[in-house]
Simulated scan of single mutants.
Amino acid sequence: MATPFQFSLFQDLNKKNVGKNLMISPLSIYHILSLTANGADKTTLAEMLKVLQQEDKDKLNSANKDISKGISKIGSCEFANGIFTKFDPEKAFTDVAKKYEADVTVLKDVEQVNKWVSDSTHEKIPKIIDSLNKDDLMILLNAVYFKGNWKKEFDQTLTRKNTFMNLGKDKKECEFMNMTEKLDYVEDDDMQAVSLNYAKDNMKAFIVLPKKDDINTFIGKLKSEQYTKTVKGLKNQKIALSVPKFEVNFEADIRANLNALGINEAFSDRADFSILKKENDLHISQIVHKTFSRVNEKGTEASAATAVTMTRNLSIDADPKPEMIVNKPFLFIIRSDKLPTDHDILFISKVEQI
């Protein structure tokens, strides 16, 4: 169900974010990297295809067509691509960009780029990049926005103060939402997990609470097969659930993480983006990913934006059982059965501090 890409990038990012909250949209990153890969050739393309786990561009674009088709069926989710450029891209690339529904616009200034991101995320991500230099020739953008009410909202009168173990050890008092309902739930020796339905579009929140390991050890061991088994093992049963209200903001330049997964040449002056620009003088200078989420009694609001900057080469580099009390670091995943089975995760978060 979940491809290694959905977790491998998250796991690599987590190594540098121990003790911090972490949230990414693997779908956003995968989609905009796929569009960027359509401008690549030779070794640059081969490395990107390997990390994106596709044999060739046709299969890559077919996978992303399925993603777009799935997203279009989710009314509570908005998905957008955009390209801002100082040069005229090659026709072979713009033809593909049309299939990704990415409008090509003349790049004038950083405010123009940030406004696109702000508008596309309902102002939840007001800025994606700080500045542009004269050699930044193109910005490829993806934005995702989701807002969903719970199918069964938490009763606000049952919200109570309780203790969350920040970083798994430091106590912090915060507001916990509570309900006792029949929910899709599973547990084993290593973890508890519950799935909460949103009111529309077959969207679900999936909360995973480790039992033995701390959250970072648990994430390091996470396998796609385990995720699939857990989702399939959910059974509807009555449980007492207590979950903190929380908000997560995260941002990172993910080049080093993608480098660790196997994309190398695209970030150097050896990069071959000749399908994008015939002069073949571009490399990826940064890939900024920003996310936001807020979870409360009514539901969830979440957004993500990814910006790929293409730069001219400069030769540089009460006590029903079971009971699930989410009072320590946990995973929060927003997923949909309407998406392709190997790209079903819109957002995945680690909440280590409240």
Results as ranks from 00 to 15, higher is better:
182 K>A: 14
183 L>Q: 05
190 D>G: 09
177 M>W: 00
189 D>V: 09
184 D>V: 00
173 E>H: 06
167 L>H: 14
195 S>I: 00
188 D>S: 11
183 L>E: 05
167 L>C: 10
193 A>T: 04
177 M>I: 01
195 S>F: 00
173 E>A: 11
171 K>R: 10
186 V>R: 07
187 E>A: 08
195 S>Y: 01
169 K>T: 07
182 K>C: 06
175 E>Y: 13
178 N>A: 08
169 K>Q: 08
183 L>C: 02
172 K>L: 09
190 D>L: 12
179 M>D: 08
193 A>C: 08
189 D>N: 15
169 K>D: 06
176 F>P: 01
186 V>N: 09
193 A>M: 06
188 D>R: 05
187 E>M: 09
186 V>Y: 09
191 M>D: 12
189 D>P: 02
174 C>F: 04
183 L>K: 03
178 N>I: 06
167 L>R: 14
177 M>P: 03
176 F>L: 03
191 M>V: 11
166 N>E: 11
173 E>F: 02
194 V>W: 02
172 K>V: 08
172 K>D: 09
179 M>F: 04
192 Q>F: 10
190 D>Y: 12
179 M>N: 08
184 D>L: 06
167 L>V: 08
176 F>W: 01
189 D>I: 09
170 D>N: 13
171 K>N: 11
184 D>E: 07
173 E>V: 14
168 G>H: 05
170 D>Y: 15
170 D>Q: 15
184 D>W: 07
181 E>Q: 07
186 V>T: 13
193 A>D: 04
182 K>Y: 11
191 M>A: 14
191 M>Q: 14
172 K>Q: 11
187 E>P: 01
166 N>H: 10
186 V>K: 11
184 D>G: 07
170 D>P: 06
170 D>G: 07
189 D>H: 10
172 K>N: 11
182 K>R: 14
185 Y>V: 00
183 L>I: 00
190 D>E: 13
176 F>H: 03
173 E>G: 07
171 K>E: 13
188 D>A: 07
191 M>W: 10
183 L>P: 00
186 V>I: 09
180 T>D: 01
179 M>A: 10
176 F>E: 03
169 K>I: 06
169 K>V: 02
170 D>H: 14
168 G>V: 00
194 V>P: 00
175 E>D: 15
178 N>Q: 07
194 V>L: 02
174 C>N: 09
191 M>I: 09
172 K>W: 03
178 N>F: 07
180 T>L: 03
177 M>A: 03
187 E>I: 01
168 G>C: 04
192 Q>N: 15
167 L>T: 11
185 Y>N: 03
185 Y>W: 00
178 N>G: 05
195 S>H: 01
191 M>S: 14
166 N>P: 07
169 K>S: 08
186 V>W: 04
180 T>C: 09
181 E>C: 02
187 E>T: 12
168 G>I: 00
175 E>M: 14
179 M>S: 09
186 V>H: 11
173 E>Y: 08
176 F>Y: 09
176 F>Q: 04
174 C>R: 06
178 N>E: 08
175 E>L: 15
170 D>R: 15
191 M>N: 11
187 E>G: 05
194 V>G: 03
169 K>G: 04
171 K>Q: 12
188 D>E: 01
188 D>V: 02
174 C>A: 08
174 C>H: 02
186 V>L: 05
186 V>G: 01
175 E>N: 14
188 D>T: 08
